[in-house]
Design a protein around this nucleic acid. Structure first.
Lengths: 232, 232, 232, 232
DNA sequence: AATGAATGAGGATTCATTCAT
DNA sequence: TATGAATGAATCCTCATTCAT
């Protein structure tokens, strides 16, 4: 008399989780189109093809929805980064993999990355430290990775590790931004592959042609700083 | 009864320009504190110590004010960049100077840079292409700079110039972001000076310790990409 | 297979009636805690430990539930009053019994009386004449009681009977209110007993010490009314 | 050149105060019609002939408006009561004056009293203790009045003073309620005058015909309480 | 009967913008 | 110019009610 598959008993929870995912996905799309603050609950509901009020069954309020969007978009990314950072590979390998994780995320869900880059990672300086913290988290994680690399002599001794972290993610982020903004063609797999490779390569070896005037580097920078400082 | 010297006739215009500047400065401060979208006209007026109705004498509407904020914060920066990019200096020198311009902007007006970085450069993907365009403009300018450098063999041949632009500004921006977010101490001049120097240096020479496993680099990246791609 | 005793056939109805009672009781408790308007269907359902959709099996809508709450709380009270009013006892006895009915109701179900006093008897002036009417009903009933008493010379000749009704119930209600609001301790049986006795006594004999300046009473009230009327 | 009347300089403040009063008056009217909770800001604005956004210039939110309504309606009443209670008149005189204050309030502003009686004095048990406290305040004030009277032997010795307070205000309130509800004709000045006089008179001397069966009063009440208590 | 997901109208509140002074 | 009162569209959120299971 009783229907007995495990599947059926799980369904209620599954349904709910699925709905939440649907709504979050809709929210991500709306973000991508209208931006973080232009995102109205009504838009999300319409995008998700559900009634307005239903959003409030699954999320306390707009803020919780927004936080969830962030979590979903961010958590997977961070856990993949952590995996790479904590591996035993060489620094070079790790850097390439970090770039790969970021570009792969873009390939899989450009929309999500768009939101991450344009809307969430930086913006609402005001209320939500969660994002702030999350952003910081990644830099710290990379910082540790570079510190370890420094001890293993894989990193130039003179470089600050936190700065290296900033540079790596800044480079990656801006590279993706150029795709997000349409300066480069994100639909061209070759372009993405090249960018991914070059980001890591340039980060590791620099952009200057070898044999260049590297020697002159330590010359006094302060002099032209004085000259320049009045210009602003 | 009325004195009619040149001075007096100029004054209205001066006054107006000054008022505009006052309001824009107030807007920048509010942005820095509350973020782009948390910025209400009333807040700006209060920060500028004027009645909020008065804002509408100097600016068509909120959008024009926002655009003006952007222009003020952006224009000076871009013109300084252009100056550097169009100079005859070597690529290395140019890169150092670009970094210097950016860091100097931060030293002069951290608040303004904060706004540029956290609020304006990216966010309101929706309405304002102006910012979009402006952002693009810088990347294109740098692109030309790198193309020229490539021709002069100052840039590694294998690197895409647009990507180099993205990397340079990504690195600079994220380095400044680490100050903006408080990960690094922006009040310490030494920290800023070091960061400025290292950003340029790392961009030019890379972060990898020389003599490292550079040889393995050209080995097949695609292989592990295949392995990794399933993990996401 | 199916047993078909009377019992079973009655049960559905019993069940339903019991459910209704459960829900109404829950509603009363919620009213007492959150007030008439703070009472959401969901709260009632939770208090009754049922799904909130189920409320709609037993009640047409919120209004019917509210009406039912009112009926349950009110009907018993009124029928007891009617019993007293229509008895052949003396006015004094009747008054004491009316007070007793009211205080006994409080002893049995302070929560219910609380609702009656604070929420239902007066408030939603708007939609529901039912309550209005019910309130009126009691005053009319008492009015008749006092008219009869007047004819039997048990009531002072100069007093308006409707006014007497208002005074009696006003006195009782406010006395209970002082318990409901916690000004007097409703958990102290002695306090309740005293209040009950004194309400009736004071209503019948007045509060003024006997032998007092009763004579001056008929003096002109209008005079000081004129003086006072300007002060408002 | 300068216009110099005091009046003009006061105007801004006056205007504001006047507006607030206008809005509060409108709110009172809406309350009287639709009840405390049926009162929408939009209704108040319409009643006051202003845009509803304007309400928010003068009041923080709905709650502050409601509180203000309460204050306006209550404060004057209480201060008049206090005046009476603290005077040196005899208890009888004071009681008459208290009744007069209440009835006069009704004559002056039946709508306001209606709101006080039907909506504010009791209802929103939930949020606002302000009203609660205010209600209590009056009872306490009267309590002190009766305590003093007791010491001067103007009050029957056996009566609890707090109970007397409750009875007095209960009687007055219910008498007014009968007008508010339309059971008695509030537009008939004679009816009001009579009610006022009789409320005080009945409160002081009781309703029972003199020479009645007063003697039997102290007979056992407990006996019939036992009998009655099972009836409920 | 019972459940709670789904719906959407209703109402509070905010804030850009206008306008009378 | 300068002020801030006035306006009302836009948007969040609540909650009574319906409905599929």
């Amino acid at each position: 008399v009783r229907r007995n598959s495990k599947k059926e008993e799980d369904k209620p929870t599954d349904r709910e989780a699925e709905r939440r995912r649907t709504i979050i996905r809709a929210a991500i799309n709306v973000f991508a189109k209208k931006g973080y603050h232009g995102c109205r609950i009504a838009d999300v509901a319409k995008e998700a093809n559900i009634a307005y009020g239903l959003v409030y069954h699954y999320f306390q309020d707009k803020d919780e929805l927004l936080s969830s969007v962030f979590d979903v978009a961010w958590t997977g990314f961070v856990s993949r980064l952590r995996e790479v950072a904590s591996s035993t590979a060489s620094l070079e390998e790790k850097v390439r993999r970090v770039a790969h994780v970021a570009f792969e995320a873009y390939r899989k869900d450009a929309q999500g990355v768009r939101v991450l880059i344009l809307e969430i990672a930086r913006s609402p300086a005001g209320g939500q430290m969660k994002r702030h913290a999350a952003f910081t988290e990644v830099l710290r994680m990379a910082d540790e990775m570079f510190q370890a690399a420094k001890q293993r002599k894989e990193l130039r001794e003179d470089l600050d590790t936190l700065l290296c972290s900033a540079l790596l993610f800044g480079a990656i982020e801006m590279a993706l931004t150029s795709f997000v903004l349409g300066l480069a063609d994100g639909r061209d797999p070759q372009a993405l592959a090249t960018a991914e490779k070059q980001v890591a390569e340039a980060f590791l070896r620099g952009v200057a042609a070898s044999g260049g005037a590297a020697a002159e580097w330590r010359s006094e920078v302060l002099d032209d700083r004085l000259k320049l400082s009045r210009r602003m």
